[in-house]
Simulated assay, not measured.
Amino acid sequence: MSIFSSIMGKIFGHHDSATAAQPGSATQPSSTTAGAPAAPATAAPAPAQSTPPQQPVDVEAVLTQMQSSHSEQLNWRTSIVDLMKLLGLDSSLSARKELAAELHYSGNTEDSAAMNMWLHKQVMQKLAENGGKVPDDLK
């Protein structure tokens, strides 16, 4: 799994589990009743990460909620390192270089400050392109 896919999974998956727990949320109703057999295997839902969510995920709200329950104060709004830490992902330089390669960074990966700023902006833009609602000041 790519690092960006992991980022999407953590944010969009966190959103899915939060909305599934809320009454009246848009979750699929169960098609089974007491004593009825389960739906056939051909009716299996598509994998969560192959398609964007049906409703836009409020990325800022999800990350703010995650930050509120995190023990360390992280600046995820501007720092790719802190964003990755908040999501529980490896934020090492080698992981960030791998993410840069995934996202087709053409700059010098030895200039980590420039690469980090580019990565944060790209990740936010890619989240928006894949069904995330990202405020303009984060793109």
Results as ranks from 00 to 15, higher is better:
residue 16 D to Q: 11
residue 85 K to N: 11
residue 22 Q to T: 07
residue 24 G to W: 06
residue 82 D to F: 08
residue 54 Q to C: 05
residue 97 K to A: 01
residue 102 E to D: 11
residue 59 V to M: 08
residue 12 F to K: 02
residue 29 P to G: 06
residue 125 Q to D: 07
residue 9 G to C: 09
residue 129 E to F: 04
residue 11 I to P: 00
residue 15 H to I: 04
residue 83 L to Q: 05
residue 87 L to V: 09
residue 113 A to G: 00
residue 92 S to H: 02
residue 10 K to D: 04
residue 14 H to C: 10
residue 23 P to T: 07
residue 59 V to Y: 00
residue 93 L to N: 10
residue 104 H to P: 02
residue 11 I to L: 06
residue 133 K to S: 13
residue 88 G to M: 06
residue 84 M to E: 01
residue 107 G to Q: 09
residue 102 E to Y: 11
residue 136 D to Y: 05
residue 50 S to N: 12
residue 64 T to P: 02
residue 8 M to L: 08
residue 68 S to G: 06
residue 46 A to G: 09
residue 79 S to P: 09
residue 139 K to I: 09
residue 80 I to T: 09
residue 33 T to H: 01
residue 134 V to T: 07
residue 36 A to N: 00
residue 9 G to R: 11
residue 45 P to Y: 04
residue 27 T to Q: 12
residue 96 R to C: 02
residue 60 E to G: 00
residue 130 N to G: 02
residue 4 F to V: 05
residue 97 K to R: 15
residue 133 K to D: 10
residue 16 D to P: 00
residue 65 Q to W: 12
residue 93 L to M: 05
residue 66 M to C: 03
residue 129 E to K: 12
residue 94 S to T: 08
residue 19 T to Q: 15
residue 5 S to R: 15
residue 87 L to M: 14
residue 96 R to E: 01
residue 114 A to Q: 12
residue 90 D to N: 07
residue 121 K to W: 03
residue 135 P to K: 03
residue 72 E to L: 11
residue 54 Q to F: 10
residue 45 P to M: 07
residue 69 S to L: 08
residue 96 R to M: 06
residue 124 M to G: 05
residue 125 Q to T: 12
residue 92 S to P: 03
residue 92 S to Y: 04
residue 67 Q to T: 06
residue 96 R to K: 10
residue 38 A to T: 01
residue 48 A to F: 14
residue 14 H to V: 00
residue 50 S to Y: 09
residue 31 S to D: 09
residue 40 P to N: 01
residue 12 F to V: 02
